[in-house]
Design a protein around this nucleic acid. Structure first.
Lengths: 139, 139
DNA sequence: ATAAATCGTGCAACAGAAGTGCATTATTCA
DNA sequence: TGAATAATGCACTTCTGTTGCACGATTTAT
């Protein structure tokens, strides 16, 4: 994607498009799998950890990326779909973690099914992670 | 529950019932909510962190407790039901995290629904956490 | 019953991820 | 241009999880 395009996308989300932010956005865009802060740190080894940390925090606050807790212990991030509203419960898609290649992907078209909770319980949010073998890791 | 009863339960799981282990088991038994290592550490402030860590690891290896990743970033543990086999996919129940009281409970009778994955994906494990308001935290 | 082997416990130290404070640099706006 | 605001980089801290090693307790074999 062209830099100018990313710039305007960031601006639309009220994120000032600095050089670093455009690079990070592009990195997330080019990778199907969700990336952790450490992944970013390793890739952008010239940049500071804190900058990357705050970049991703800003993205998250402004709805550019969403957090993924895939059970590995390290939080990962993936770009939100255009028009996605990750806060809305009905938009909650599930995530798939591959035990073989250690990558996590969004299955944006698979929503978390409705769960019938016991009396007195109210659902506000949900997180579903399926672990197994992904399409890229044949047996 | 009587100490003798806990002793025999531990022995049945091939865990030698030391004083510490019986205390930890009892603590988990008396608390409906799942507990973290830090919770144990705070409660048993005379005991060492490592001992508690290894106690819970032993329990986990022997199928006495199961791990819960509730998305808070800290792993919690809860006693397995009698006869529960947490490894078996069909036995996977869901967990509920209360945003108000910050406690996590097993909803053992609610199983994770079957998910239809895209072609090429194989499920081996799953984790579903619902977040919201629990029965003890009325509005 | 005693010695050898094994297991449990406690201390110290480490690793990785996440987060904060502060100074410096860059950018925007009046 | 200059003041205000935002972004970046460095150092440091905290929290959770984990390992190595030594000592003490318990079990097992003789």
């Amino acid at each position: 994607m062209k830099t100018a395009k990313i710039e305007s996308l960031l601006q639309k989300s009220n994120v000032r498009p600095t050089a670093m932010r455009i690079l990070v956005y592009n990195f997330l865009l080019e990778n199907e799998a969700a990336k952790s802060l450490t992944d970013l740190e390793n890739y952008f080894d010239k940049s500071d950890r804190t900058t990357l940390y705050r970049t991703i925090k800003t993205f998250e606050d402004k709805g550019v990326v969403h957090q993924i807790d895939d059970g590995t212990g390290t939080t990962k991030y993936a770009l939100c779909e255009q028009g996605c509203n990750c806060q809305i419960e009905t938009d909650l898609h599930l995530h798939f973690y591959c035990n073989i290649c250690d990558e996590t992907v969004c299955l944006t078209d698979r929503k978390i099914p409705n769960i019938n909770l016991p009396d007195g319980y109210t659902a506000e949010d949900a997180n579903l992670v399926i672990k197994g073998r992904c399409e890229k890791c044949p047996e």
